[in-house]
Design a protein around this nucleic acid. Sequence first.
DNA 1: CGTGTAAGGAATTCTGACACG
DNA 2: CGTGTAAGGAATTCTGACACG
Lengths: 101, 101
Amino acid sequence: MASYKDKKVITIGIVNELTGLSERKIRYYEERGLIFPDRTKRGTRKYSFADIELLMKIADKREEGVQTSEIKKDMMREKRKKDLREEMLRGQINAHFNRQK
Amino acid sequence: MASYKDKKVITIGIVNELTGLSERKIRYYEERGLIFPDRTKRGTRKYSFADIELLMKIADKREEGVQTSEIKKDMMREKRKKDLREEMLRGQINAHFNRQK
DNA sequence: CGTGTAAGGAATTCTGACACG
DNA sequence: CGTGTAAGGAATTCTGACACG
Protein backbone atom coordinates (compact mmCIF):
# COMPACT_ATOMS: atom_id res chain seq x y z
CA MET A 1 0.00 0.00 0.00
CA ALA A 2 2.87 2.39 0.69
CA SER A 3 3.58 3.33 -2.92
CA TYR A 4 4.92 6.45 -4.57
CA LYS A 5 1.86 8.41 -3.49
CA ASP A 6 2.66 8.00 0.18
CA LYS A 7 6.43 8.34 0.16
CA LYS A 8 7.50 11.56 1.84
CA VAL A 9 10.19 12.93 -0.42
CA ILE A 10 9.11 16.42 -1.48
CA THR A 11 10.59 19.54 0.09
CA ILE A 12 8.46 22.52 1.04
CA GLY A 13 9.67 24.67 -1.85
CA ILE A 14 8.39 22.11 -4.37
CA VAL A 15 5.14 21.78 -2.45
CA ASN A 16 4.78 25.53 -2.79
CA GLU A 17 5.36 25.24 -6.56
CA LEU A 18 2.83 22.42 -6.84
CA THR A 19 0.05 23.84 -4.66
CA GLY A 20 0.60 27.57 -4.82
CA LEU A 21 0.35 27.72 -1.03
CA SER A 22 2.87 29.89 0.82
CA GLU A 23 5.39 28.13 3.02
CA ARG A 24 3.89 29.98 5.95
CA LYS A 25 0.48 28.46 5.28
CA ILE A 26 1.92 24.98 4.78
CA ARG A 27 3.77 25.16 8.08
CA TYR A 28 0.76 26.60 9.85
CA TYR A 29 -1.51 23.74 8.75
CA GLU A 30 1.07 21.41 10.22
CA GLU A 31 1.05 23.42 13.45
CA ARG A 32 -2.71 22.94 13.60
CA GLY A 33 -2.38 19.19 13.16
CA LEU A 34 -3.84 18.95 9.67
CA ILE A 35 -0.77 17.56 7.98
CA PHE A 36 2.23 15.52 9.12
CA PRO A 37 5.38 15.77 7.02
CA ASP A 38 8.41 13.64 7.79
CA ARG A 39 11.76 15.27 8.50
CA THR A 40 15.25 14.65 7.20
CA LYS A 41 17.99 14.13 9.78
CA ARG A 42 18.66 17.82 9.65
CA GLY A 43 15.05 18.80 10.12
CA THR A 44 13.88 19.68 6.62
CA ARG A 45 10.24 18.83 6.04
CA LYS A 46 9.37 16.13 3.50
CA TYR A 47 5.89 15.70 2.00
CA SER A 48 4.18 13.00 -0.09
CA PHE A 49 1.89 13.37 -3.10
CA ALA A 50 -0.93 12.37 -0.75
CA ASP A 51 0.04 15.30 1.47
CA ILE A 52 -0.10 17.60 -1.53
CA GLU A 53 -3.60 16.45 -2.42
CA LEU A 54 -4.66 16.91 1.17
CA LEU A 55 -3.19 20.41 1.21
CA MET A 56 -5.22 21.32 -1.85
CA LYS A 57 -8.38 20.09 -0.17
CA ILE A 58 -7.49 22.14 2.89
CA ALA A 59 -6.93 25.18 0.71
CA ASP A 60 -10.38 24.74 -0.84
CA LYS A 61 -12.02 24.57 2.58
CA ARG A 62 -10.13 27.62 3.78
CA GLU A 63 -11.30 29.54 0.73
CA GLU A 64 -14.84 28.62 1.72
CA GLY A 65 -14.08 30.21 5.07
CA VAL A 66 -13.85 26.97 7.06
CA GLN A 67 -11.56 27.28 10.09
CA THR A 68 -8.66 24.91 10.56
CA SER A 69 -10.28 23.50 13.71
CA GLU A 70 -13.39 22.61 11.71
CA ILE A 71 -11.31 21.08 8.94
CA LYS A 72 -9.54 18.97 11.51
CA LYS A 73 -12.82 17.79 13.01
CA ASP A 74 -14.08 16.83 9.55
CA MET A 75 -10.90 14.92 8.85
CA MET A 76 -11.17 13.02 12.12
CA ARG A 77 -14.82 12.20 11.45
CA GLU A 78 -13.91 10.78 8.08
CA LYS A 79 -11.07 8.83 9.55
CA ARG A 80 -13.37 7.32 12.15
CA LYS A 81 -15.85 6.31 9.46
CA LYS A 82 -13.08 4.74 7.43
CA ASP A 83 -11.69 2.86 10.44
CA LEU A 84 -15.20 1.62 11.19
CA ARG A 85 -15.72 0.35 7.65
CA GLU A 86 -12.43 -1.49 7.83
CA GLU A 87 -13.31 -2.89 11.23
CA MET A 88 -16.62 -4.23 9.91
CA LEU A 89 -14.93 -5.71 6.88
CA ARG A 90 -12.49 -7.51 9.13
CA GLY A 91 -15.43 -8.77 11.17
CA GLN A 92 -17.10 -10.21 8.08
CA ILE A 93 -13.89 -11.87 6.98
CA ASN A 94 -13.47 -13.42 10.41
CA ALA A 95 -17.08 -14.59 10.46
CA HIS A 96 -16.54 -16.19 7.09
CA PHE A 97 -13.50 -18.15 8.20
CA ASN A 98 -15.05 -19.11 11.53
CA ARG A 99 -18.02 -20.63 9.72
CA GLN A 100 -15.61 -22.85 7.81
CA LYS A 101 -14.21 -24.45 10.95
CA MET B 1 0.39 8.02 -18.09
CA ALA B 2 2.26 10.82 -16.32
CA SER B 3 1.48 9.76 -12.76
CA TYR B 4 3.33 10.16 -9.48
CA LYS B 5 6.11 7.90 -10.69
CA ASP B 6 7.12 10.30 -13.43
CA LYS B 7 6.66 13.64 -11.71
CA LYS B 8 10.00 15.31 -11.12
CA VAL B 9 9.77 16.65 -7.60
CA ILE B 10 12.64 15.15 -5.61
CA THR B 11 15.77 17.15 -4.80
CA ILE B 12 19.23 15.66 -5.05
CA GLY B 13 19.71 15.39 -1.31
CA ILE B 14 16.66 13.13 -1.02
CA VAL B 15 17.80 11.12 -4.03
CA ASN B 16 21.06 10.60 -2.18
CA GLU B 17 19.13 9.38 0.90
CA LEU B 18 17.01 7.05 -1.22
CA THR B 19 19.72 5.56 -3.43
CA GLY B 20 22.86 5.94 -1.36
CA LEU B 21 24.61 7.44 -4.40
CA SER B 22 26.80 10.49 -3.81
CA GLU B 23 25.64 13.76 -5.31
CA ARG B 24 28.81 13.75 -7.36
CA LYS B 25 27.83 10.43 -8.98
CA ILE B 26 24.27 11.51 -9.57
CA ARG B 27 25.41 14.68 -11.32
CA TYR B 28 28.02 12.79 -13.29
CA TYR B 29 25.48 10.31 -14.67
CA GLU B 30 23.51 13.31 -15.83
CA GLU B 31 26.63 14.75 -17.47
CA ARG B 32 27.02 11.48 -19.36
CA GLY B 33 23.43 11.61 -20.59
CA LEU B 34 22.07 8.72 -18.55
CA ILE B 35 19.52 10.70 -16.59
CA PHE B 36 17.58 13.91 -17.19
CA PRO B 37 16.31 15.76 -14.14
CA ASP B 38 14.15 18.83 -14.47
CA ARG B 39 15.20 22.11 -12.91
CA THR B 40 13.41 24.63 -10.73
CA LYS B 41 13.47 28.24 -11.88
CA ARG B 42 16.56 28.71 -9.77
CA GLY B 43 18.36 25.72 -11.20
CA THR B 44 17.93 23.08 -8.53
CA ARG B 45 17.66 19.57 -9.97
CA LYS B 46 14.39 17.67 -9.56
CA TYR B 47 14.08 13.90 -10.01
CA SER B 48 11.15 11.45 -10.29
CA PHE B 49 10.69 8.04 -8.70
CA ALA B 50 11.33 6.61 -12.16
CA ASP B 51 14.67 8.46 -12.17
CA ILE B 52 15.51 6.93 -8.82
CA GLU B 53 14.80 3.42 -10.08
CA LEU B 54 16.92 4.12 -13.14
CA LEU B 55 19.76 5.41 -10.96
CA MET B 56 19.70 2.20 -8.97
CA LYS B 57 19.92 0.16 -12.17
CA ILE B 58 22.84 2.33 -13.27
CA ALA B 59 24.52 1.79 -9.92
CA ASP B 60 24.18 -1.99 -10.33
CA LYS B 61 25.77 -1.87 -13.77
CA ARG B 62 28.60 0.31 -12.55
CA GLU B 63 29.29 -2.15 -9.75
CA GLU B 64 29.59 -4.83 -12.41
CA GLY B 65 32.23 -2.64 -14.00
CA VAL B 66 30.12 -1.48 -16.95
CA GLN B 67 31.20 1.93 -18.25
CA THR B 68 28.70 4.78 -18.52
CA SER B 69 29.07 4.80 -22.31
CA GLU B 70 28.05 1.12 -22.43
CA ILE B 71 25.16 1.71 -20.07
CA LYS B 72 23.99 4.50 -22.34
CA LYS B 73 24.20 2.27 -25.43
CA ASP B 74 22.18 -0.42 -23.67
CA MET B 75 19.56 2.11 -22.68
CA MET B 76 19.28 3.39 -26.24
CA ARG B 77 18.99 -0.16 -27.59
CA GLU B 78 16.17 -0.88 -25.21
CA LYS B 79 14.45 2.34 -26.08
CA ARG B 80 14.65 1.48 -29.77
CA LYS B 81 13.12 -1.93 -29.12
CA LYS B 82 10.35 -0.40 -27.09
CA ASP B 83 9.62 2.23 -29.76
CA LEU B 84 9.51 -0.54 -32.36
CA ARG B 85 7.04 -2.61 -30.35
CA GLU B 86 4.79 0.42 -29.97
CA GLU B 87 5.11 1.20 -33.66
CA MET B 88 4.03 -2.33 -34.57
CA LEU B 89 1.14 -2.22 -32.13
CA ARG B 90 -0.05 0.99 -33.72
CA GLY B 91 0.22 -0.69 -37.11
CA GLN B 92 -1.98 -3.58 -36.02
CA ILE B 93 -4.55 -1.24 -34.58
CA ASN B 94 -4.66 0.72 -37.82
CA ALA B 95 -4.96 -2.47 -39.88
CA HIS B 96 -7.86 -3.54 -37.73
CA PHE B 97 -9.77 -0.34 -38.21
CA ASN B 98 -9.02 -0.17 -41.92
CA ARG B 99 -10.50 -3.64 -42.38
CA GLN B 100 -13.73 -2.38 -40.87
CA LYS B 101 -14.20 0.32 -43.46
C1' DC C 1 37.10 7.31 -16.96
C1' DG C 2 34.76 7.86 -12.61
C1' DT C 3 34.73 9.91 -8.35
C1' DG C 4 36.30 12.68 -4.26
C1' DT C 5 37.04 17.07 -2.44
C1' DA C 6 37.71 22.08 -1.23
C1' DA C 7 35.89 26.75 -2.78
C1' DG C 8 32.72 30.43 -3.03
C1' DG C 9 28.39 32.01 -3.85
C1' DA C 10 23.50 31.79 -4.18
C1' DA C 11 19.15 29.92 -2.76
C1' DT C 12 16.56 27.10 0.79
C1' DT C 13 14.78 26.01 5.07
C1' DC C 14 14.15 26.52 9.95
C1' DT C 15 12.48 28.73 14.29
C1' DG C 16 10.56 32.29 17.14
C1' DA C 17 8.57 36.69 17.02
C1' DC C 18 5.99 40.82 15.93
C1' DA C 19 2.13 42.77 13.16
C1' DC C 20 -2.60 43.08 11.76
C1' DG C 21 -7.22 42.28 11.88
C1' DC D 1 -7.45 33.07 13.94
C1' DG D 2 -4.71 32.96 9.82
C1' DT D 3 -1.13 34.86 7.42
C1' DG D 4 2.72 38.10 6.11
C1' DT D 5 7.24 39.52 6.98
C1' DA D 6 12.04 40.62 8.63
C1' DA D 7 15.90 38.20 11.24
C1' DG D 8 19.72 35.24 11.81
C1' DG D 9 21.66 30.99 11.35
C1' DA D 10 22.33 26.51 9.49
C1' DA D 11 22.10 23.32 5.74
C1' DT D 12 21.57 22.68 0.58
C1' DT D 13 22.72 23.07 -4.01
C1' DC D 14 25.32 24.75 -7.88
C1' DT D 15 29.43 25.20 -10.97
C1' DG D 16 34.15 24.78 -12.37
C1' DA D 17 38.40 22.90 -11.08
C1' DC D 18 42.13 20.05 -9.37
C1' DA D 19 43.48 15.34 -7.88
C1' DC D 20 44.13 10.48 -8.59
C1' DG D 21 44.41 6.46 -11.00
